[in-house]
Nucleic acid binder design. Structure first.
Lengths: 110, 110
DNA sequence: CGAGAATATATCTATATGGCTATATAGCTA
DNA sequence: TAGCTATATAGCCATATAGATATATTCTCG
């Protein structure tokens, strides 16, 4: 798990890679599309994509000639869960809100 | 802001540093106390602390002979906010819950 | 099958990072 | 002030990372 967190945090510690995730949040994209906004070589982008994929933040597909990438939310959830343990430090109302919700359980939630 | 995120994510991409934050979540601690659980030299720990401090994740105090560290939650909130933009990708109920809360606003929240 | 398009891999270079040991600094306390 | 304690800084080494360019691979299409 530590290794997972290492890889995910490390992958996110780069503005290019975060921007790529931002783009993928709008939907599937090819390598060329992902590279377009940047003044970087295509291999540089491929390298960033490899880092993201190894961290589990994205996945590669296969579509004719191209290998489109999609977001893989599980990895983001992993670190969101990690951070959640610290939430009480900045969000005063968190404990009470959490408490409140656990009692309500009546709101629409499948 | 990108620089800030770079520094924070990068600081978190190390298990030793995350463990230090975990310890500080239980309260203020001296460098010696923070170093204790690890098989690392004192200078190595001091370096990690510097990284955490430059990322804004901790602060140094001054108490007689020692320089105790405390958690600085704002930096963690910064990345929690960043991740929040992706929450809808893994949390199906998020949109509706968010909607629900914005209507209630009557729960105890100062 | 041959050409072109999309992407990956290899190799090289420069810089960053994490660890160590040795040493410096700062504040108590006798 | 001298010495002890707590911590920081300097300098060194090994490895990792982010770029680049050149080249290889894999499909598609005529």
């Amino acid at each position: 798990m530590d290794d997972k967190l290492d890889a995910i945090f490390s992958a996110l510690a780069d503005p290019t890679r975060r921007a790529i995730l931002g783009r993928l949040a709008k939907g599937k994209a090819t390598v060329a599309e992902l590279a377009d906004p940047f003044a970087l070589s295509q291999p540089a982008i491929s390298k960033h994509l490899k880092v993201l994929e190894q961290a589990g933040l994205i996945r590669s597909g296969r579509e004719a000639n191209s290998r489109p990438r999609v977001l893989e939310p599980a990895a983001l959830k992993t670190i969101a869960d990690w951070i959640a343990d610290y939430r009480r430090f900045w969000d005063q109302s968190f404990d009470r809100l959490d408490d409140y919700l656990s009692k309500v359980q009546g709101y629409e939630n499948d």
